[in-house]
Design a protein around this nucleic acid. Sequence first.
DNA 1: CTCTCGATGCACT
DNA 2: GTGCATCGAGAGA
Length: 193
Amino acid sequence: MKILLPDFYQKPTFEVARALIGKIVVRKIDGQLLMGKIIETEAYGFDNDPASHAYRGRTKRNEPMFGQIATAYVYFIYGNHYCFNIVARDSMQAGAVLIRALEPIRGIEFMKKMRKKDNEILLTNGPGKLAQALQLNKNHNFLDLTKKGNLWIQDNDLLSSERIVQTKRIGINKAVDLQWRFCINNNQWVSRL
DNA sequence: CTCTCGATGCACT
DNA sequence: GTGCATCGAGAGA
């Protein structure tokens, strides 16, 4: 499995969001590997996207979205949860892909422990859930995802005939009609239909 | 400084 | 389906 290189992320953000479906998130903790297949993503833009953190310009929080592509943008939300994004864009000044759901591939027992849940569906079927399962937090903000450190993204060599569907984004109140959400059709780890 | 509210998850009816 | 915990970022005064 080859690691995804920077040029993979140097495309319009919504295209990268679609391309990331089926790819593998790898997390290393204390020498143990956790892996999950990306099932659901959303693209967030810049001044073309009122729902994006970057919409009103550069701030301390959204700094990663304006920074180097192929790095992580992790933010804290609702006083409880972290959300994991990957910085990706071409000509825009800012842009990132929110990872909304994974299918657990490896390290499932560890994820169950972190999530305090035994049901495999409930481990990573939502952005806050997968961040908890993989123990992602502010420490991973700005992290280069093209290097094999403790978090990176790999290609998926296995052929997949699953259909990718494109829909409106979830959990936002602005730009609600933009079809910038992608997920594997009929997959049980998708956060919502 | 104060106020609002959110790219959520979970318990509950 | 509805309600809400919980806290930091961002906006405005």
